[in-house]
Design a binder for these strands. Sequence first.
DNA 1: CGCTTTTGACCGGCGC
DNA 2: GCGCCGGTCAAAAGCG
Length: 514
Amino acid sequence: MMDDFLKSRHGGEERHAEMRKLDASHDDPHQDIIRSKLDSTKVEIEEAREENRILKSSLSRIKKEFEVLQTQYNQLTVQHEDLNKFSTKGHHQDKNEDEEKERISERDELVLLSLGTRLKSPVPSVSVTNKEEKTKDFMDETGDEKNIDEHKRSSYQGLSLGFEYKDLSNPTEKFEIGHNQANTSLVVSNKTKIPSENSFGFKNDGDDHEDEEELLPQNLVKKARMNDGCQWRKYGQKIAKGNPCPRAYYRCTIAPSCPVRKQRCSEDMSILISTYEGTHNHPLPLSATAMASATSAAASMLLSGASSSSSAAAADLHGLNFSLSGNSNIPKPKSPFLQTSSSGHPTVTLDLTTSSSSQQPFLSMLNRFSAPPSNVSRSNSYPSTNLNFSNSTNTLMNWGGVGNRNEQYRAAYGNISTLQQSPYHHVIQTRIAGSSLDPFGRSSSYSPHPTQTNLDYVGIKSITHQVQYLPAETIKAITTNSNFQSALATALSSIMGTDVKMDNVTRNEAEKSP
DNA sequence: CGCTTTTGACCGGCGC
DNA sequence: GCGCCGGTCAAAAGCG
């Protein structure tokens, strides 16, 4: 059909050109003009011919590709049917079939493991393993003890808080925080795909822009719930001027009257920014609170640059004086939310605007902003913190300026070639927008949650800082930090409804920690 | 069927 | 006053 169309188009243009040529020979006074027109027409005809030729070649190529794909599909279908036969027979026909099934099973598991975590739904060409089905059941029905037990049995090592640290000096390795079993990984990776359903059982955003469609096209786009424990509904999207990435608008849907809004946008292909605004007027879900605990601990460690010291008692930041009296008695942090983006961007977003059990962690963080970690700054020559808490100003805090990033990482790792090649930066980003509320008091009179206080104070509603290229020692410090581990244990426990086992050393350290 | 996303329309603030 | 721009609304469509 396409060929007929092309032929008719082709032939028709040739006849038109011949007729014009005959007409031109009878019109001598305008011969030059006509000749020039004729020439241009010839050029157009040649262009049309070329276009037709390209279309034909494209058509034939598409046909070939289609045939190849169809062949592959048929092969996979036959393979899948064979697998089903194996599973329904209940026993193996012979040793060869047994080995073949085992190979396929192992391959499937390898695929799953290579993703860093399991997917909500399987990749179409990969069959679902029994383990994955059990895991899915567990995640779907977290309240079912039977499923929990089943899940525990199916796990390789059960749930534990043994953190695996991989040195970035080997840039080919995955960069993970708190790697654990399939359902408990908290991954910040420059290479791996962020799980479509994260370690806490919350689905990742479906709004994480086009990148995640490239990464996990069939699973992530449809998922719309935030993974910070709250429920958000998207109510708008705009393409901001000068930014090709759209900005999405969400509102909290836990309570109909909740005024909390959230914006998400990518300022470039490597940074995903979440902005929270308002205060929840309802109790946050337990999962959200638990998530906040883990996040806060991680944030504190990240922001401290692997430094455990926070001795300064006050921070004077651009004219805003933050008194930190009683800083030594910082309770277990419970404020910010953490999100690991599913977009493939290694972006961690910390919400500092939501209700909190204490303002102390926030102040602690500010304190650390003002005083760059001594050990890091000495060893790696990190520049001083660039932090601006001006109202409505989004200020970036870079641990390592762009200009001397290479030198820093050469100092830290010796070889940074792969890091440089990575399209993404390791980014921790927090934004706090300006607040029009009482700059030095509580922003609202109510405390929506009995255990929460409001962080909208000191004239700041949000803060933006970036930590690009997390140093190896930072990651190590995070994953070995007792605060973070205990907080993560709390989070997991609250979600699973069971005690998460911690090794004795970790527990003792956590208990000793303030 | 209910919930969510999508997307064009609408509105208000702001700069010229 | 006008146009631009960001934020929100709401109807339509998609999805489980």
